[in-house]
Design a protein around this nucleic acid. Structure first.
Length: 424
RNA sequence: GGAGAGGUGGCCGAGUGGUCGAAGGCGCUCGCUUGGAAAGCGAGUGUGCCCCACAAGGGUACCGGGGGUUCGAAUCCCUUCCUCUCCGCCA
């Protein structure tokens, strides 16, 4: 979440940023936030003063008691009742005001970086660059949902039987291709300097709040209510939360992690014809990269991450483009996001396979993730993450783009990982 | 799941109702010492919020989390989470 002190100091910038995002009632919300903060401060002052008084009296009583002056002590005691009542009332008001302020802050998204273009929907996103060659597919090229049936490598109906829609079963070479991609992505990440981790895929509430999934996207996560755990929608959540409540030393930076996990998304209300086959699933596999960076270096890191992700797509010989998301399409917690889209030749459509974002201090503020600067002052760090990569749409693109009459040709880089060159 | 023990500052560890944000040790930082280092000596060394200039200084809160008793709680009570030991179950 945003820092209230920052909002106070840069009200105009914040207002402009929220407007770029089409955030409703920005001005009124900011006004309300500042008002609540004023109230909070005033209550805090009053409360502290009352507590200071009663602390003093308590000390006095202690001294009198130890001197054996019992009656005098009793007399002082009788004066404490009003203070106690006052303190109780003030602390309740303070708590309520703080709670209201926090809840309101939770509803305010991150401020976009100045580079983020204005716009409302994905049609306003900027295409920064396009790479690779879109293949000329033969007449009768098939979309991946037909190819997976033809070669019997992914079975949706079987998954439906076991669980429900959106939980496919990968079979034979389909399963091996999954394993190959995960290993390929992890090896590449290690080579690029990311420290591999395997985190839990269930998280507690504090972690969900830390990275911003809660309370904003409560309904998008599967919730194991018996233990109050959530199934992760992305490895970003457990990996970033490893650093919750930490104060790092500058020489510990940057932190770079990569992790493979399954991801679970309820995708409530977003189903339809355009999300056939592998285009949208409730459970999918993904390798995620996460960086924790010094504020001065986070934008450098963003470019580095973007370049790294693009290198993966090049190695997989997939045609792709890089988008700069517009304000309206930007994720709630992100300050800037690049999307990488792969062209799926048979569907004749660009599929988002990766999203890399700089959250600046937005997550760090919730996480209380800081570093000690040269003046020994604690400062919020910047967090970034990106998919590197999400499997299903990569698989879809490989299947569709590499289809031939003889079968599906596995990209060279993956052959050592798969142990086969063709799916046929 | 059952029974028991315990959770204190970066780490170890003392503290069972009063002047305790917390002894002592280790670590770390700075200084002295040294040719340099070690040792030794000296000083410093938590976090949030509030006043204030994000300084100095001051107030307040924090001894796993939440709540309570009390004039006063690290210390007592309740609750919850976690760790350890034993038993049970088990990949």
């Amino acid at each position: 979440m945003l820092q209230i002190a920052h909002i106070r100091l840069h009200k105009e910038v914040v207002l402009q940023g929220l407007t770029k995002r089409n955030f409703k009632n920005a001005e009124a919300t900011l006004k309300k936030l500042l008002l609540l903060d004023d109230q909070r401060k005033e209550l805090q002052q009053k409360h502290d003063a009352v507590l200071a008084q009663s602390n003093q009296l308590a000390k006095q009583i202690g001294q009198l008691m130890s001197q054996g002056k019992k009656e005098e002590a009793e007399e002082v005691k009788s004066n404490t009742a009003t203070l106690k009542a006052e303190s109780k009332q003030l602390s309740e008001s303070l708590k309520n005001t703080e709670e209201e302020l926090t809840q309101l802050l939770y509803t305010v998204p991150n401020i976009p970086n100045p580079r983020v273009p204005a716009g409302n929907t994905d049609t306003d996103n900027q295409v920064l660059s396009t790479h690779g060659n879109i293949p000329d597919l033969p007449q009768g090229a098939k979309p991946h949902w037909e190819l997976i049936e033809q070669y019997d490598i992914i079975d949706f109906e079987l998954g439906t039987k076991i669980t429900g829609a959106g939980f496919p079963v990968y079979k034979g070479k389909g399963a091996k291709l999954q394993r190959a991609l995960v290993n390929f992505f992890l090896d590449q990440a290690t080579e690029a300097g990311y420290h591999e981790v395997q985190p839990p895929i269930l998280i507690n509430q504090a972690s969900g709040i830390g990275t911003g999934q809660l309370p904003d996207k409560e309904g998008q996560m599967y919730h194991a209510t018996e233990d109050d755990f959530y199934l992760i929608p992305t490895a970003e959540v457990p990996i970033t939360n490893m650093y919750r409540d930490l104060i790092l030393k500058e020489d510990q930076l940057p932190v770079k992690h990569a992790g493979f996990t399954p991801c679970f998304r309820r995708e409530a209300g977003s189903w339809g014809a355009h999300v056939r086959g592998l285009n949208r699933l409730h459970q999918f596999d993904k390798v995620e990269i996460v960086q924790i960076q010094h504020p001065d270096k986070s934008y450098e890191a963003l470019e580095e991450m973007s370049a790294y992700i693009q290198s993966l797509l090049s190695k997989l010989e997939l045609p792709y483009r890089v988008l700069l998301l517009c304000g309206g399409d930007l994720g709630f917690t992100s300050a800037i996001t690049y999307d990488m889209e792969v062209f799926s030749a048979a569907q004749q459509k660009w599929l988002e396979v990766s999203s890399v974002s700089n959250f600046e201090t937005y997550q760090a503020n919730r996480l209380k993730l800081r570093y000690k600067d040269a003046n020994k002052k604690n400062q919020l760090l910047h967090t970034l993450n990106g998919s590197a990569l999400a499997l299903p749409r990569i698989v879809a693109a490989i299947l569709e783009n590499n289809q031939t009459p003889e079968g599906i040709k596995i990209p060279k880089a993956l052959v050592p990982y798969c142990g086969f060159e063709w799916i046929n």
